[in-house]
Design a protein around this nucleic acid. Structure first.
Lengths: 337, 337
DNA sequence: GTGAGAAATGTAATGCTTTACATTTGCGGA
DNA sequence: TCCGCAAATGTAAAGCATTACATTTCTCAC
């Protein structure tokens, strides 16, 4: 069942069938109709591989994430896949588990498959990967790699702006001692968030003590550990901002285990706004980071560069505060001293 | 940079290069080494499309899920992708959003791409899809479609066994009135769970009243609603089993909002064992359904049928109880009357 | 009705690899 | 040394669609 069969049935050449298939406007409508009828009758579907081989276009986009089990990524994938499907494009993907080797292998595999574009939603990007991408002509978009913004398309999150909003929110509630639970320093997205938090504190003219910064791991454990530390401190912060929601939820959990009330004793703010935030008790105030927006921008960033020269471009997404029940007025005596 | 360049460099024909590439044993080791050297030197990568076009094998597997945002599915995908990667196979996927049209379109797209195998992890499967698959020769594996088990490979969950375990657990704790929050009747996986629960109740010789069965929707809302109903009943069940974790968590949430203590007033059991179960308070007792196992079996089900005739085959996965904090002894007076 | 130019369609090369079949090489035995 | 057979390698077709270029068919003006 190939294009020749269709051509014969419609009484035209394969070239004409191909033109109809590819919506070329150089075919008379009456001919096109005949061809379409033949296609329908034979239930013909063009062979994707032959198509890609010849045309150099695969109609396939690649997406790479660091951890598909982290609810952040499925949201990204869903929107990306949904847009692709709407455009008749398929998506193939790879999961790196934060592992650089797997990222490199994944990028290589996808490139070899001749994808038309690649979205890399991982925080760690080795130079080997960069070089590989440099040597290819496939449009690529990165998430949160400002350092690459001169060379590749990038979607970036304005962390500072988000944290400023969080801090202002806490300040309005009377908090002056705000701590931070960071993510693993090895994770570049985490260290970016940490830096952004420091910058936000500074720009809000707040005081920040070193021991108000807790090392976490972007998982429940990190939050749990931070909570234990915090509740045993003599001069503890009255509010905590976390590098991500998982951390905040771990914190919440331990606080409740220790019989500490949130937000009465400590106000808590997460980051990302995973759906769990509404489920935990108290519901978590957090900074909403729109996966839908990130994915949409990423999609169009590579989509628009189809064919054209790849031009670097940076697109900035701003998180915004979603106040829920885990933040409240600062307890008396915890104000500025 | 094609295979001819490599052949020339190595002083052999393209056929020999191809044989080396495909690990054929018909090449003398010394020749193979020369070819490999040429490949490395030229940094040659075979063209995937040409390969697939000619050989009919794409080294690509498809995976279709109903809702990638439901944490159940990323777990499945992760394991599936991880196994595929280990075997040097790529994965492409589609998300249906429980929509039959999208499922059909997705299956069609994937088949056209010439995938070597397809795992369909959705509950709704229309006859159109079945027919499409019937007319193709691609090995397919379904999740929980016992009715298709005669024709396709299937991985099935032994729901009854899981529910029996749950009911036995509750009985040991002194519960005799056990209710159930079902999923949406339109969702076949939900109605299967419902039927299995009824069967389990019967096989445990328990009594079940009609109004102990609540209609849910497999989301938080369903559980919330059920909790409100239950706590306003005169003769309420002392324990509730839910069709999935999300439902149970919604229940938990509302119970806590209403000031009802779990498990003191009502014991609660979920289904699936999403990671959130450990996070909510009290931690949710649930039936663990191993996504890893399901994905692994699905992968090998289609992998083993490569080339061979597609033989139907059913593989059964059993859920098991994970006791946590949401189940406890039946309150006095709630025993058998 | 004719011719020029535009529009439509056709021809055939091309993309790159795999593989059936043909040929050469190598080896062991006589 | 020579033969025969197995092993290794080579030749060339095939897989299917796209597309540059060539050819035919229209259309319209005169």
């Amino acid at each position: 069942m190939d294009i020749l069969a269709v051509a014969r049935k419609a009484g035209v050449s394969t070239a004409t069938v191909s033109r109809v298939l590819n919506a070329s406007d150089k075919v008379r409508e009456s001919t096109a109709a005949r061809v379409r009828a033949a296609i329908a009758e034979l239930n013909y579907r063009p062979n994707t591989n032959a198509r890609s081989l010849r045309s150099g276009r695969s109609n396939l986009l690649g997406i790479i994430v660091s951890d598909i089990r982290n609810p952040f990524f499925p949201d990204l994938i869903e929107q990306f896949e949904s847009l692709a499907t709407q455009h008749g494009i398929d998506v193939t993907f790879a999961n790196t588990g934060y592992n650089e080797q797997r990222l490199l292998a994944g990028v290589r595999r996808l490139l070899e498959r001749g994808i038309d574009g690649l979205a890399i939603f991982t925080s760690e990007v080795s130079t080997a990967v960069i070089e590989l991408l440099r040597s290819s002509t496939v449009p690529v978009v990165f998430l949160n790699q400002p350092s690459l913004a001169g060379e590749f398309r990038t979607v970036s999150v304005d962390y500072v702006r988000g944290f400023v909003e969080a801090i202002e929110h806490l300040r309005m509630l009377g908090h002056h001692r705000i701590g931070f639970v960071a993510g693993p320093p090895t994770l570049s997205s985490a260290s970016r968030r940490r830096k952004a938090f420091l910058a936000a504190v500074k720009s809000c003219h707040m005081v920040l003590k070193d021991d108000w910064i807790f090392e976490g791991d972007h998982r429940l454990t990190g939050g749990r550990f931070a909570a234990e530390r915090l509740f045993s401190m003599r001069q503890a912060p009255s509010a905590i901002v976390c590098s991500n929601d998982m951390t905040a939820i771990g914190f919440l959990e331990t606080a409740s285990r220790l019989g500490r009330r949130i937000p009465d004793e400590v106000s808590l703010i997460g980051f990302d706004d995973l759906f769990i935030c509404e489920v935990v008790h108290p519901a978590l105030t957090t900074l909403h980071l729109s996966r839908k927006e990130i994915a949409t921008r990423a999609f169009y960033a590579i989509q628009s560069s189809r064919g054209e020269a790849i031009e670097a471009q940076i697109s900035v997404v701003s998180p915004y505060l979603v106040p829920r029940a885990s933040t409240g007025p600062a307890a008396k005596g915890s104000g500025r001293r």
